[in-house]
Design a protein around this nucleic acid. Structure first.
Lengths: 83, 83, 83, 83
DNA sequence: CTGCCATTTTACCGGC
DNA sequence: GCCGGTAAAATGGCAG
């Protein structure tokens, strides 16, 4: 490990603080996102579904279809019917 | 609030400890479940899909279809195609 | 992937059912915990406070373990062996 | 439910896009953080330790706030006002 | 490629 | 009965 009492300690502190600062900003954005969902909810949208939508749009189309197919396979294997 | 120095304190402690004991047991069961999924994975099953299956089986059929329908509505509204 | 139309279907079903059984037990424990809180409330304790206490005690424990882990990481980084 | 074939579709799209924009920014910050850790590593710091430190500092903060909250709850339960 | 850790999502619970 | 917040579960990403 680098020396703990000397310049390295300062460097470490500085790096840690930069991380913490960025994490705060990240938190702020997360809060903004939550606010948007609240707003959406307040005008009658279903937040859970909206989250699903965002996830689907982010997802690669091939992956999505693969997952669907696999789910089908499993449900059939168990004799479940997916309406 | 009830008296903090007296019989009530003992009662409180006892209740807290009962809760903690039960939570430990709950934790143990959660670990057991994780083990089963590990085992499943090791023999080639897709854990993520298995979890989906468990969730679907737990879910009321009506709720499930409602959610599907709502997702459809939203994706159509956005011009997305759900293959 | 494992065969889905063969004996694997049985294996899958068995795994799923084991999970479901454990989840039921877990649910039962959760209910027991709720009962304790109800009981506590009925004799005059403040449930919110009790939950906070349980949470804090758990956090303290986690914190302690985390400190341990950090110390561990340090000693490893320094090539030391912790007795 | 809100109308899905009408102006509401536009509102939905707008909300979704706002979320997506913010998530991109969040992702960018996450990448920045990763970069800092890379940089730290390249000058000889142990990233795992650094992450633990950041986590601990955050936990301490949370813990402190939790203690505050508990005190608050107590005082409210006692009908006291905290100056 | 596997296990771990962080993030994200879901479910729950008490209060209003 | 809804709503907000809090804890649990699950998903995804990273390091070794």
């Amino acid at each position: 490990m680098v020396e703990t009492g000397g310049i390295a300690a300062d460097a470490l502190r500085s790096l840690i603080e930069r991380v913490e600062r960025l994490e705060e900003e990240k938190k702020a954005l997360a809060d903004d996102i939550k606010d948007i969902y609240s707003e959406a909810k307040s005008v009658g949208f279903d937040v859970k579904i909206m989250r699903q939508i965002v996830r689907l749009r982010k997802m690669d189309e091939n992956d999505r279809q693969e997952q669907e197919a696999l789910l089908d396979t499993y449900t059939h294997a168990l004799g479940m019917i997916r309406g």
